[in-house]
Every structure is written in structure tokens, then in C-alpha cells.
Amino acid sequence: MELTITLLLFFALVTTAVAIALLRNLFAVVMLSGVASLLAALLFIVMDAVDVAFTEAAVGAGISSVLMLSTIALTARHEKIPTRSSLVPLAIVSLTGMVLIYGTLDMPNFGSADAPVQTHVGPEYIQRTPKEIHVPNIVTGVLASYRGYDTLGEVTVVFTAGLGVILLLGGIGRRRRRGKGQS
């Protein structure tokens, strides 16, 4: 059953990607990319990576759709029909895809118990987290305590970036509106 659902979701994901490549209406492309990231999130959930799935849904379907829509508002709604043939880009993309698939051949199978992650680091965290941190969820324990400085650094970087964007763009909007009021 799990295999069937995974295959169906992958089929829908590939269909969405082909539709994105075919469509010229950029608004529809943005909506379809939101659908693609929701499908990817569902695949992550089927693979039990719930936190990754949540990030994918929030960033892919939420933030990046809005960013793309802002870009469309500044540029154009329809894509120009390309004059040059797209065979070379297709070949490059296929080649990159094949290289990536070749790279996964050496990796251990999904969920296999003798993968290096499961034999060294995983058991250590599973044994130590309940005693040392007293958090029932081990992933939360790792992120918030063992890698606490890492998470603090990430949060600082994101906060600084957001502050910079607000200071730069917020000032522009206010000035433009004040100028409009005077004229």
C-alpha cells in the first residue's frame, strides 16, 4: 500500500512538472508550483520525515508562491514563446538527472537498518536523549539541545536578513506614498 501511494504521488509530481514546463500563463505556473511542493510534502510525510515536509509546505507553497506573485506583478503575466530550440537545455537537464541518480546508487536503501546513520549516531541519540534532555521527541531534542548553538545561529541569520529587508523595503514604500500625497 505504501509503495502504491508513493508511486501515485511521484506520478502526480512528474505530471505537475511537465504541466509547469508546458504552460505559458505564469500565474498558473505559480499555482502549479505550489501544488508541486504540496505533493513533495506528502511524499516526505509518507517517508515519515514530518518536519521536512512541514518546511517544504510552508516555504514552497506559502512564501515562495507569494514571492513569485510579487515578481509577476513587477514583470509580465505571460511567458514569451522561446525562439531557440530547447533541445540543449533538455539534454543538460537529463544528464544532470542521470548523474544525480547515479550518485544515489551507492547510498544505503531507504530505511535500511545497517546504514551508517543507524549504526553509529542514531542509537547514541536514542539512548541519551531521554536521560539527558527529558524531551519525548528525539528530533526536537537534537535540534533544540545537542545542536542548540547551530539552531541559534540559523535563527540569528534569518532574523538579521528579515530585519534588513524590512528596513530597506519598508522605507521605500513609505517614501513613495508620501511623494504621491504631495503631488
Binding site: 510525510i45 514530518v50 515536509a53 509546505a57 507553497a61 506559502g62 508562491s65 507569494v66 510579487s70 514604500g173
Partner: peptide, 30 residues
């Protein structure tokens, strides 16, 4: 996983409101 489904419902709601607000006012935020 049901809790996570609730979070997705929230994201979906906020996202739709953001898209519609954007098309109504041509900008977000203020």
C-alpha cells in the same frame, strides 16, 4: 500526524488569503 494536518490547514488558509490580498491590493503587508 493529525496535528500536522491541522498546521497544513492553517498554512493553506493564510496562503490563500495572501494570494487574494495580493491580487486585490497589488502589495502585501501595509
Amino acid at each position: 500526524f493529525l496535528d500536522i494536518a491541522l498546521l497544513y490547514a492553517l498554512i493553506n488558509f493564510v496562503g490563500t488569503i495572501a494570494v487574494l490580498k495580493f491580487f486585490r491590493y497589488r502589495r502585501l503587508g501595509d
